[in-house]
Design a binder for these strands. Structure first.
Length: 473
RNA sequence: GGCCCCUUCGUCUAGCGGUUAGGACGUCGGCCUCUCACGCCGAAAACAUGGGUUCAAGUCCCGUAGGGGUCACCA
């Protein structure tokens, strides 16, 4: 027998944007598929028709594409195990449910929602666990009556599976109840739908959030009832907010799109997310190829992790520094445009990015902080009072004249000009550079002053110096 | 509440019976310096707790506490 190719999947419900936690689940699956040379399947679990939307499908696909998580089978690309939307697979679930019914492993239940709710209420009043009592277990099958299909769970014993992340996990059967697997309208519930799909899509390893650990024994039991060996399972710990509760909106942005809009590089998000729960010694920064090569389940931690935006910013900064300036400039254009600046896709932007990137954490910050290279300065009143003084005025005039008379704006020439001006007046270089900085940028913090002059160019530099000389007392 | 899972600096983690418990983010100091950053150097900072097992326990076992998850005709 040939060893089967690894097949993994990501199976989101299209009820909203791609959540940072979902993205990490998708990422780990994708990494394992690429690491093993296997296949990565994307399946849309849209059986909850009230909450599923097409725009959510689009948002999830967009998010995955932005992160570079390409799928080998699924929406838009198709594949031999389709369709990849659960609502288009209803006949498959029905077929498997009938198989179970025929073997007496599932049965029709005619209890009404009201009856069940009453039972639940009573159990609660008696401070007792409610479990479906098996009322319809042995009733004859009557398809003409409204019914759901339930799976017959064993009453005693326990089921154990070996989780790739958490190790062996046992579930006592007496905590299980005869679950509904098909609703009255023929739509499957999560455990059954996911299981039938994983089975028919030949998934060999199910990696999902560990909010599903309690579902696993039930699914294993159903696999066994169908006479098939269950896939391997890997349950990824949750991502938590700063207060150690499950990461949600009240902790801040949770969609990957939000991080794109904040100016994060896609690979920086990938790099951060993978390190949240997986490690390789002391290494923090990984290229995509390294991740594919190094990723394994052994190094996935079993503990939930707190999402730390500061560290993600640091990772982003590392990748901004590692990205070729030309490429980074291209990625920065939308952020400058969003900041209201147009005509930025040019060589000047490459220069801005080169000197600016070490001073910011994100592309959005870059556009915001260095807008004065493309827009009129906003003169900080405090900086003006402190540096555009009567004493500074002649210095500014000398620099202005020097730049006007200079040939090409070479760094060496500028240095000579600034230092010469300082020495003649017995001033520290800062007494020259700071007033010029305020004149050219409006504030007291900026990239190196020679870079600023070079980026602005002679014409704009002279214009801003003239304005500063004009407003100085 | 039942069941399941988890527990090393504030946070992410390394550690796989013998370590001065290492790294990273963040914080704080210093150096560099035309400002701000970057970079470099340094500091503070952790094995939840109680019992075992062992010559030896952060590492193995049990209990306790704390945290998380889950108990639907949601996923």
């Amino acid at each position: 027998m040939v060893s089967p190719v690894t097949r993994v999947r990501f199976a989101p419900s299209p009820t909203g944007y791609l959540h940072i936690g979902g993205a990490r689940t998708a990422l780990f699956n994708w990494l394992w598929a690429r690491h093993t040379g296997g296949r990565f399947v994307l399946r849309i679990e849209d059986t909850d028709r009230e909450r599923s939307t097409q725009s959510a499908v689009d948002a999830i696909l967009d998010g995955m594409r932005w992160l570079g998580l390409d799928w080998d089978e699924g929406p838009e690309v198709g594949g031999p195990h389709g369709p990849y939307f659960q609502t288009e697979r209803l006949d498959v679930y029905k077929q498997y449910a009938e198989k179970l019914i025929a073997q007496g492993k599932a049965y029709a239940c005619y209890c009404t929602k009201e009856e069940l709710d009453a039972g639940r209420k009573q159990a609660e009043a008696e401070k007792r666990q409610f479990r479906y009592p098996g009322t319809c277990r042995d009733k004859p099958y009557d398809p003409s009556k409204r019914h759901v299909i339930r799976f017959r769970m064993p009453d005693a014993g326990y089921t154990t599976f070996d989780d790739l992340v958490k190790g062996p996990i046992s579930t006592p059967h007496d905590t299980l109840q005869d679950e509904v697997i098909l609703r009255g309208d023929g739509v499957p519930l999560y455990n059954f739908g996911a299981l039938v799909d994983d089975l028919t899509m030949e998934i060999t390893l199910v990696a999902r959030g560990d909010d599903h650990v309690n579902n696993t024994a039930r699914q294993v039991l159903m696999y066994e009832a169908l006479g098939v060996t269950p896939p391997a399972f890997a349950h990824l710990p949750m991502i938590l907010g700063a207060d150690k509760t499950r990461l949600s909106k009240r902790h801040g942005a949770t969609s990957v799109t939000a991080y794109r809009d904040m100016g994060f590089l896609p690979h920086a998000v990938v790099n951060y997310l993978v390190r949240l729960g997986w490690s390789h010694g002391d290494q923090e920064i990984f290229t995509r190829d390294e991740l594919v090569q190094l990723f394994d389940w052994k190094s996935v931690g079993a503990t939930a992790g707190v999402f730390n935006p500061e560290k993600m910013q640091w990772v982003n900064h590392q990748w901004m520094m590692a990205t070729p300036p030309y490429e980074l400039a291209r990625l920065a254009v939308p952020h400058f445009q969003r900041a209201g600046l147009t005509d930025v896709a040019d060589e000047k932007l490459v220069h801005v990015v080169t000197v600016g990137r070490e001073r910011v954490k994100t592309l959005a910050e870059l556009a915001e902080q260095f807008r004065y290279f493309y827009a009129p300065i906003a003169l900080d009143p405090k900086a003006k009072d402190k540096f555009l003084t009567a004493e500074a005025k002649p210095v500014l005039e000398e620099i202005r004249a020097g730049i006007a008379a200079m040939g090409a704006l070479e760094t060496a020439a500028l240095e000579q000009l600034f230092h010469g001006a300082a020495e003649r007046r017995e001033l520290k270089i800062g007494k020259v550079a700071q007033p010029v900085r305020v004149a050219l940028t409006g504030g007291t913090a900026s990239p190196g002053i020679y870079d600023v002059v070079q980026i602005l160019g002679r014409e704009e530099t002279l214009r801003r110096l003239d304005e500063a000389i004009r407003v100085a007392p």
